[in-house]
C-alpha cells in the first residue's frame, strides 16, 4: 500500500466562513479591513498538502475492519453507509501559519484571532477540495461522535504524516501544525457538516 501526497493550489476563499470562525455575525469596515490584511499576510505562508491512501473496509456490527487494524465506532459505520472503500487522509495548511498566529498572539490578539479563523476556513476548504476530487462527500474524523481520538495514533502510523506532509501528533493527541485534519472519507454526496453534528450548542454552528 502506498501513501500518496498531493499539493493543492489555493482553494477559493469564503469570507463569510472566516467571519463565522472569528465570532462575527456581521463585519464593520474596520473588521473587514483587518480580515483582508490578514488574508494577504496568511497567503504568503499557507501551503496545502494532503497525504492519503485507499483502504477497503469490512463492517461487522459497530466495528470497521480495515485488514491490518480495526476501529470500533458505530457512528463511523453509519457514515460508511454500506460503502467498502474508504480514503484515509491527513491534510494540513502548514506550520508557517502557526508561526504567524503565535507571533500575533503575543503582539496583536485581534490579528491572531483573525488568522486562526482564516486557518480554520482554509483547512476545511482544503479538505473539501480533496474530497471532491476523490469523489468523497462525507468525511469523519477522530473525535467526532463515538470515534475515539486515540485512533489518531493508528492513522499517523499508517499515513506516516510527518514524513509526507510534516504533520505530527502530540502526546495529548493534538496535531501540529494546528490547522490540520485527519479523516476517513467516504464516497457519496456532500452533506451539511453542521447539520449532521450532534453538538447543537456549538458557538460556531453554521446556518442549517
Amino acid at each position: 500500500m502506498t501513501i500518496f501526497t498531493k499539493t493543492y493550489k489555493e482553494p477559493p476563499i469564503c469570507e463569510k466562513e472566516i467571519l463565522r470562525y472569528a465570532g462575527c455575525k456581521e463585519a464593520s469596515d474596520d473588521v473587514t479591513e483587518l480580515m483582508h490584511s490578514c488574508i494577504d499576510e496568511a497567503r504568503l505562508c499557507l501551503s496545502y498538502k494532503v497525504c492519503y491512501c485507499e483502504l477497503s473496509v469490512k463492517v461487522e456490527e459497530d466495528e470497521c475492519d480495515f485488514g491490518n487494524f480495526s476501529v470500533a465506532s458505530g457512528d463511523l459505520v453509519k457514515c460508511l453507509a454500506g460503502s467498502n472503500r474508504v480514503v484515509l487522509f491527513g491534510a494540513t495548511v502548514g506550520s508557517s501559519l502557526d508561526r504567524l498566529i503565535a507571533k500575533y498572539s503575543r503582539i496583536s490578539p485581534s490579528r491572531a484571532l483573525m488568522l486562526q479563523a482564516i486557518g480554520a476556513e482554509r483547512i476545511e476548504a482544503l479538505c473539501d477540495a480533496f474530497c471532491k476530487e476523490s469523489g468523497c462527500g462525507v468525511r469523519f474524523s477522530p473525535g467526532y461522535g463515538d470515534l475515539s481520538l486515540q485512533v489518531q495514533k493508528k492513522i499517523f502510523d499508517i499515513l506516516n504524516c510527518e514524513k509526507h506532509i510534516g504533520l505530527t501528533l502530540n502526546d495529548s493527541l493534538v496535531m501540529s501544525p494546528s490547522k490540520s485534519v485527519t479523516a476517513f472519507a467516504v464516497s457519496g454526496k456532500a452533506k451539511n457538516k453542521c447539520k449532521s453534528c450532534k453538538k447543537t450548542d456549538c458557538a460556531y454552528r453554521g446556518a442549517l
Binding site: A22, G23, C24, K25, E26, A27, S28, D30, V31, L34, M35, S108, P109, S110, L113, M114
Partner: peptide, 10 residues
C-alpha cells in the same frame, strides 16, 4: 464582536 473588541483592547 470579538475582533472589534480586541482591536480596541490593543
Amino acid at each position: 464582536y470579538l475582533p472589534q473588541l480586541l482591536m480596541s483592547a490593543e
